[in-house]
């Protein structure tokens, strides 16, 4: 398809015949990259091998013994992590240069096998007893440390997940044991606070000029945890007085963020969560008025038209020179 385009560019005198010749050779001799295919096959092979070996070990657990198994998993984890640490990119406060191939996967494998080993320990020997908080606290510290030290966003995500479960577990057990039910108010409150904390981190790190490229990872967790907590507070706890203004604040914040940073992702996410919240408020509060079905249809038509025009015109509104 390229010759007519090349011809056209030549006629417009944008390129010289010399450039055209270069491009022609390039198009004719382009090598065929098998990167994606071979890599997929490699990982598929690794996954299949792991599943198969896992099953085999599971079936023969009596003859192998738990100690040997835990040791094996521990060795795998240690080897992966040591490899990752020895081949780490030089530390910098910004983004490090790209590490060797497979590096990310070996590091992730090390982290995941560490989790498996810990889970195995707890399951078989109850080393943490009922102190589940500690069981999530250790991987959290490890993953945050590794994530920052080795500059890896995947491990950082694992760390944030561990943080969320640590916080979630620390606030629930007492309630769980005393009343034998999940007190969702605590969980929702924790969610909101956690989201606020996660939102704060990127701004602090930007101020300190330290690992600014982790911002998106933090904010991605923060936006979903925060908004879902607010919606849960509105719907499940019926505390609209508290959580609806919070939701509005969060939506406003992310719209502001989207505008200043030119992020279309946060723009769309904020608009969708905000729309769900507002629609919920409208439907629950007009319930007693016995309005006609047509009113709601009209609401959807008008509100969606409004949102569509907002989203379309936001492109002009969003700052183009944003990073």
């Amino acid at each position: 398809m390229h010759p007519p385009i090349l011809q056209n560019l030549l006629q417009q005198e944008i390129i010289t015949p010399e450039d055209a010749a270069k491009i022609d050779i390039f198009e004719a001799k382009k090598p065929f990259s098998l990167h994606w295919e071979l890599k997929s096959l490699l990982y598929l092979g690794v996954i299949l091998l792991n599943i198969g070996l896992g099953f085999l070990i599971y079936q023969n657990i009596d003859s192998i013994g738990h100690i040997a198994l835990i040791a094996l998993i521990g060795v795998i984890s240690a080897v992966c992590l040591i490899y990752a640490i020895r081949h780490r990119p030089p530390f910098s406060a910004g983004a490090s240069e790209s590490p060797p191939p497979y590096y990310d996967y070996i590091l992730l494998l090390g982290c995941l096998t560490f989790l498996i080993m810990e889970g195995y320990w707890q399951f078989q020997y109850q080393i943490f007893g009922t102190r589940y908080g500690l069981a999530t606290f250790i991987p959290m510290v490890l993953f945050f440390g590794l994530g920052y030290w080795l500059d890896n966003r995947g491990v950082l995500s694992l760390g944030i997940t561990a943080l969320a479960s640590w916080v979630g577990i620390t606030v629930t057990p007492q309630e769980l044991l005393s009343k034998n039910d999940f007190n969702s108010a605590t969980i929702v409150q924790t969610g909101v606070l956690l989201a606020a904390l996660l939102t704060l981190v990127p701004f602090v790190s930007e101020r300190l000029n330290f690992k600014k490229h982790f911002s998106l990872t933090y904010l991605n967790f923060a936006v979903h945890i925060g908004m879902i907590s607010c919606l849960a507070g509105m719907m499940a706890l019926d505390l609209e007085v508290l959580y609806f203004p919070l939701l509005c604040g969060a939506v406003g914040f992310y719209l502001w963020y989207a505008r200043t940073r030119g992020s279309f992702y946060f723009l769309t996410v904020a608009v969708v969560y905000g729309y769900i919240g507002i629609t919920y408020m409208l439907i629950t509060h007009t319930d007693s008025l016995n309005l006609d079905f047509m009113f709601y249809l009209l609401y959807f038509v008008l509100s969606c038209t409004g949102v569509i025009f907002f989203l379309i015109n936001y492109k002009r509104f969003i700052k183009n020179d944003a990073p």
Partner: peptide, 30 residues
Amino acid sequence: AVIGGAVLFATAYFSIQYLRKHEGTYTYAA
């Protein structure tokens, strides 16, 4: 699963090694 996985892994691994050494029409470079 074990045998299939091993075969897949070996095929992919050795193809990658081969292509690394023999740059040409086919390549492993992304």
